[in-house]
Structure formats: C-alpha cells, structure tokens
C-alpha cells in the first residue's frame, strides 16, 4: 500500500481511543512538532528563500537575484550531466536489484527451506555496513590496475575494463555498490509481502496445475503490485540522493569528466566546495520537483493499472 493511499484511509477508521484525556493529545506530539518545525520544515522553507539569493557563508553581501539561479541551472551543462547520471545509475541499480530481490524472496518464502532464519540474516549483513565502508572496499575491487575484478577478468581471458574512466563501467561500479548494500534488504521486504499473500491462491493455482513460473507471474507478481509501487517510489527518492558512493569513488566532481557525478553530489559540490549556497539551494529544489513529478506519475500509473483490473473483474 502506498503512503498516500494509507494516509487517505486513516481518517475513515474510527478509533475508540481514550477520549476523556484527548486534550493531552497535542502535548504528546509537541516534542516531535517542535524539533520537526525547527530542523525539518524551517530549513526547507529557508531553502526556497535561499534559492532566490546570491548567498555566501560568511559574506554580508548576500543579495536577491530573482530567478537567476534557476535560469543559470537550466543552462548549466554540469547539471544536465548530473541529471542523466542520476537516472542511469538509478536504472542500472533498481532493475537488477528488484529482479534479484524478488528471486531471493520467492526462494526464501518456501515453507520447507532449511536454515531459513540463517539465510535471511546473512542477506541483511550488507545493509548494516556503512556506505563509506562499501565505497572504500568496492573502489579497491574495481581498481584500474590491481583491482580484484580486473585481475579475475584477465584470468578468465576477458578484456580489461576501465571501471573508473569509462562512463558506463564507472556507473555500473557505483550501481554495484548500491545493489550490494540493498538487495538483501529488498528481498526481505518482498518476502514479507509474499508471506502475506493468502495461501488459498497458491493452493488453487497448484490444483489448476500451474507451473512454478506461471504461479509467480499470475499469482505472486499481481499480489505484490502495491509493494512494487511503494518500492519504486522509495527507490526513486533514494536514487535521487545517491551521493557518497560517487564521492568516494571519484571525488566531488564525480570522476575526471563528471562521468558519475550525481544531482546530490553536484549540490554538495556547489555548496561546500564552491561556496555557492543559493545555487545549491536551487539544485535542491530541482531535485524535489523531480521527486514530486515521479511520485505523481507513479500514482497515475498505479491508478491506471488498478482501473484496468477493475474492468476485468
């Protein structure tokens, strides 16, 4: 169930609760509300303000520039390179990650699997590893000359790949870091969703003589539709925040020719390397607009699919 759908459902529930003391309700959310207002909402509002200013950290000479940051951004080739890279890295990480996670989930959902808890636990280890450590070890593995991966490829008689200099190879390397860290976690999410599918559906599929592949396509996947939509939205938001992997792999520019510079990395570079806080704020707003557009498209898409299903039944 998507967050939005969930939010819509909430008001319709009539919780009995403890009405006599309801006047205290507001007191209970006050700590959260205060922290959130000061360090969550205020920075966001101030970011919007900042995006219309030329703003330097210690300068007194900050001045209003109107839409200049935005018009510069539209024409900034580095920005568009970052947009392209962010999306291509997202694509080459999300698609294989989802396929492998689904496969793992189906395998783990088998009720007769031995050592089930052991496998689940092992798959979560990458997720507790810090992005920094992941970046460090994979930078070494993908190293140009002495990296294990090139050495192994040489051993297998495959050509050497420039995993740092090449645009696609370097993005594959970054996507590998992301995939390694997230695939097991995603598998557990899909596993939970699969275990929640009513057993009767599988039993009737079995009685109808469906093969395992048919069961997966016609029973499991349609039942996971909400989870998949949810993961796509969360994955996009996460994907747009890809930052530390490229920073470790090739510095603040995301490689010598920006071959793996991402949007968030570009924001970081403009703010904290070049000291252009107003411009960085404009990049932040651009990222948010992209998130909103994608979430909206996603919502339309899932409504369309739901509508078609409605016609069928």
């Amino acid at each position: 169930m998507s967050l939005l759908q969930k939010a819509k459902m909430m008001p319709s529930r009539k919780a009995a609760g403890i009405h006599a003391h309801d006047k205290w309700g507001f007191l209970y959310i006050t700590p959260f509300f205060t922290i959130f207002l000061l360090f969550g909402l205020l920075p966001i509002l101030f970011t919007v303000y900042l995006a219309f200013y030329h703003w330097e950290l210690l300068s007194e000479a900050n001045y209003y520039v109107g839409f200049q940051n935005f018009s510069e951004l539209i024409k900034d080739p580095y920005f568009w390179i970052a947009v392209r890279n962010t999306f291509s890295i997202f694509f080459i990480s999300f698609v294989p990650q989802t396929i492998v996670a689904l496969l793992l989930a189906v395998v783990l959902a088998n009720p007769h699997l031995k050592f089930a808890m052991f496998w689940r636990t092992m798959l979560l280890i990458p997720w507790i590893t810090s992005v920094l450590a992941v970046g460090i070890v994979f930078s070494q593995l993908f190293g140009r000359e002495f990296g294990m991966i090139n050495v192994a490829m040489q051993y297998l008689g495959l050509p050497q790949v420039d995993w740092v200099g090449g645009t696609i190879p370097s993005q594959v390397a970054i996507a590998t870091m992301i995939n390694w860290r997230w695939v097991g976690y995603n598998a557990l999410i899909y596993l939970a969703a699969i275990l929640a599918i009513p057993k009767e559906l599988y039993e009737s599929a079995e009685i109808d003589g469906a093969s395992r592949w048919q069961t997966f396509i016609y029973v499991t996947i349609p039942q996971l539709r909400n989870t998949l939509t949810f993961m796509l939205v969360v994955g996009t938001i996460g994907g747009l925040q890809t930052f530390l992997e490229p920073l470790i792999y090739g510095g603040a520019t995301g490689g010598d020719s920006r071959q793996f510079s991402t949007l968030t990395l570009y924001l970081f570079e403009q703010a904290f390397i070049n000291g252009r806080f107003g411009y960085a704020a404009a990049i932040g707003i651009a990222i948010t607009i992209i998130v909103v557009i994608i979430s909206f498209l996603n919502y339309l898409g899932s409504r369309k699919i739901a509508g078609e299903e409605g016609v069928k039944s």
Binding site: L3, I237, T264, A281, G284, T288
Partner: peptide, 14 residues
C-alpha cells in the same frame, strides 16, 4: 517523501 538532502545546506547554515 521529501529528499533529506533538500534542507541540508540550510541546516548547515543554521
């Protein structure tokens, strides 16, 4: 649903 890095520049300024 908002990306957490949206406010990071301003949070730092604060």
């Amino acid at each position: 649903m908002l990306p957490s890095q949206l406010g990071v520049v301003v949070l730092y300024l604060i």
